[in-house]
Design a protein around this nucleic acid. Sequence first.
DNA 1: GTATGTGCAAACTTTTTGCACTTCG
DNA 2: CGAAGTGCAAAAAGTTTGCACATAC
Lengths: 144, 144
Amino acid sequence: MTITNLKNRLVAKGLRVTPQRLAILEAFEKLHNHPTAEKIYDYIRKKFPNVAEGTVYKVLDTLVSNQLVRKVNTEKDIMRYDAILERHHHLYCPDSERIEDYFDEELNHLIEKHFKNKEIPGFKIEEIRLQLIGKFKNLKSNTV
Amino acid sequence: MTITNLKNRLVAKGLRVTPQRLAILEAFEKLHNHPTAEKIYDYIRKKFPNVAEGTVYKVLDTLVSNQLVRKVNTEKDIMRYDAILERHHHLYCPDSERIEDYFDEELNHLIEKHFKNKEIPGFKIEEIRLQLIGKFKNLKSNTV
DNA sequence: GTATGTGCAAACTTTTTGCACTTCG
DNA sequence: CGAAGTGCAAAAAGTTTGCACATAC
């Protein structure tokens, strides 16, 4: 992912392109661990030593509102973020706090088909997210 | 749900039966809105005016560790809890913060069957949770 | 009686806010 | 230039902790 591409994402949403925003988007490319605001803050401070933590939160809010980034649902009170926009699910190990992306088109179709036949009274589904809770078999060190 | 039943849940886990714990379990029966710690605190304070908020958090932790209560995954940094232990999923509207339980055995079988044929390398699934994100059609006032 | 649980208050962590200053377009 | 974004510091919100006291068993 080039800086130009990251810039285009902002421009496409009518957002101003600032070094801080680019740095945060870049952080997602490098970290790809569903990072917390703090992880992102730590990462971009290498480049921008006086970026404010408040700015990180504000930028993340903006990115979420503009659907360039999403909040990840966890069992913790620390928010985590995800910049993968393609439809996907999560593998989640509550013990290690590790989260990995999971893509499964076959499963998506299966579920879509199921809900085509089965309306839920009083509720309009916009999106279906699966959390596969379990344990990783240590193929990779835990990375929160 | 009677107090005796609530008591039994604690006894079955080898936990001491205290009025505070009973009150919190009872609060789940009455609130059934996937309440926050604060909602529970507000609720039980009617009966126990000098219960401490810290106690609510401690009891909730204990109940979660003993699997009498679960944390609900949301996009918010405020933790919400669920005392329904039967396998189920959630309807979740991020705008109103409303969460409702969703039971669907047919869907469970569908998903189970899917993962019987499809192992995920490096990951052992223990549980599958669906979040159906969408909007409620105002059949009921929003209750966070 | 003893291990466990509670109340209270302080501390800690994460996130939000307000406002002057700066920057993007 | 003007609207939008940032830095900073203070405050808010949610949660955890430590310890003396109280209670369950």
